[in-house]
């Protein structure tokens, strides 16, 4: 049974959650988890982190620690019954997990606000039809088939356009941050 940690630990923990949640959720998505399942797994990882807080080194990197917990949860997900898997494709997740352990990610990342601000600036640089496509996909949460229906194009065309937009945004964001994402 875990000991009940004093309130000051909870305050500290909450501040760590706010600081690292963006990176944690992006990392989980980067393991090939379905977008709708990312927050569930991130919550599970943070609850586990809270329960195991006594094991966390005081001068350790909380962000990296909790991502490692999430990494194990995703690996467990791969071993579960696949009747309703939360992964996009199991074999791709295997590979992404392996690649992430090889690179092990940066220890210091830009603050979420900075990343989001940079991303917003890059969105502004897109041509109008590109911004509209991103708006439909992410802000209205339409799937490519629904966008295709609205715009009178094929789903494949919409998906390919979205891929080009994402690549352009990735180049822009990484160029401004001076570091690679993920």
């Amino acid at each position: 049974m875990r000991d009940f940690l004093p309130q000051r630990d909870r305050v500290w923990f909450t501040s760590q959650v706010r600081q690292h949640q963006s990176c944690l959720r992006a990392s989980i998505r980067g393991f090939g988890v379905q977008a709708e399942a990312v927050d569930d797994i991130a919550q599970d990882a943070l609850v586990l982190a809270w329960e195991k807080l006594a094991e966390f080194e005081p001068d350790g990197d909380f962000g990296r620690w909790v991502i490692q917990i999430a990494r194990r949860l995703v690996a467990n997900e791969r071993r579960k019954d696949t009747r309703r898997s939360r992964l996009l494709a199991g074999e791709v997740t295997d590979l992404l997990l392996r690649l992430s352990s090889e690179t092990d990610g940066p220890t210091v990342r830009a603050e979420r606000n900075e990343e989001v601000a940079v991303l917003r600036a890059c969105l502004e640089e897109l041509p109008a039809h590109g911004r509209e496509m991103i708006r439909l996909r992410y802000f209205e949460d339409l799937v490519p088939g629904a966008i295709a229906g609205r715009l009178g194009r094929s789903s494949d065309t919409v998906r390919q356009f979205l891929l080009r937009l994402r690549r352009a945004l990735l180049e822009c964001v990484e160029g401004r941050l001076g570091a690679k994402l993920g």
Binding site: S22, R29, G30, L96, R166, R167
Partner: peptide, 14 residues
């Protein structure tokens, strides 16, 4: 991996 990461950031931005 980086594109998935960007996708997550776009979702957070929204």
């Amino acid at each position: 991996r980086r594109l998935l990461w960007l996708d997550a950031l776009l979702r957070q931005t929204a």
